[in-house]
Design a protein around this nucleic acid. Structure first.
Lengths: 187, 187
DNA sequence: GTCTATAGTTGGATAGAC
DNA sequence: GTCTATCCAACTATAGAC
């Protein structure tokens, strides 16, 4: 792993715990057993660190959405695949995902604009899948915005929950979460 | 409204937008058309502002939960009432709720401990209601932790969504959200 | 109750030696 | 590539005049 990668990984951990604004370059350097000045041989500044962490994981979602849209399964199956996608990314990029969720508003300039665009496109694509599911009679004919809000609220929170889970519990989650989100908890 | 109330209200707005660490006492003073030094005639410091904002709304949840537990309705009805409680608080305390959700980790000392205790108790009470619902056959016999996680993820995100809604849309939400969360979206 | 002035600390970032 | 030293801006909070 390159030194830059190590810095990004350590920064993501610290940002997750304390938030971007509360972590100083000295904190980050100390966590890496070096001095703050040395960080600048690998990155241009604090903002570049934040932008790299967030945009990398944002592009993971975009790529995943593209793959789901390519196949020609039912809307229900696509929704299931998206739920699995969120679980996978939460497992692989736990810290970066936390940073994306809590510190995106501290992005500045072009990276901020890019993040906003990627998020808007992702939500629009998700909405289209839900709408086609309603048309096909797979989902109840209720407010699409409310459906999307409920799904994304839970999917965006998975990273808070996943690190505490064992491998078998995660396997259970991959089965139960689509069930709970799509068919409800009432018996 | 007292000067202290005005400060708390303005601070909650700013903390919601930019986060606790990124808002300075000068920012807060400027938003109130005064100088930073003058703030200290009304509050002891930045931490007191944060603690007051968060603990006030945290106690709203505790009080609401106590009221729900007192009645002897079904677990399903209690869960419905809790969903309505979250919507009501999200409407009345939108900014404070955002601060509670995103900046609780910046609390220090006794207020931090109190918040953690209140949250733990609330989640435990909620879990008990879900468990009694499973026992009574009202809910599916699935993992209670997963059920609770899903419900709280959505309920904790309502504040992000509510300010954009009209009065009629909020009325719809009070009907559709319990339905979506408890009976699912599949037709 | 608000102000000016300022203390004392800490922030991101750079210069230049090794 | 890492260090020491340092710049300078910005931070929370206090002192004391009005």
């Amino acid at each position: 792993m390159t030194r830059k990668r190590q810095i990004l990984k350590t920064a993501a951990q610290l940002f997750k715990e304390r938030g971007y604004s509360a972590v100083t370059m000295r904190d980050l350097a100390a966590a890496m057993d070096m001095k703050a000045a040395s960080l600048y041989n690998h990155i241009s500044g604090k903002q570049e660190i934040l932008a790299t962490i967030i945009l990398e994981v944002a592009h993971e979602f975009t790529t995943g959405m593209d793959m789901v849209e390519e196949n020609d399964k039912s809307a229900f199956a696509k929704a299931e695949q998206l739920i699995i996608l969120h679980i996978k990314i939460a497992l692989e990029y736990t810290d970066a995902l936390a940073v994306l969720n809590t510190d995106w508003m501290h992005l500045e300039g072009a990276p901020y604009q890019e993040y906003i665009t990627l998020r808007k496109e992702y939500e629009l694509d998700f909405k289209k899948i839900l709408e086609s599911g309603i048309k096909a009679g797979e989902f109840k004919a209720m407010n699409v915005e409310t459906m999307l809000f409920n799904l994304l609220s839970t999917l965006r929170s998975i990273y808070l929950w996943i690190p505490k889970k064992s491998a078998t519990e995660v396997a259970d989650l991959k089965k139960e979460l689509p069930q709970i989100l799509l068919t409800g908890i009432s018996s």
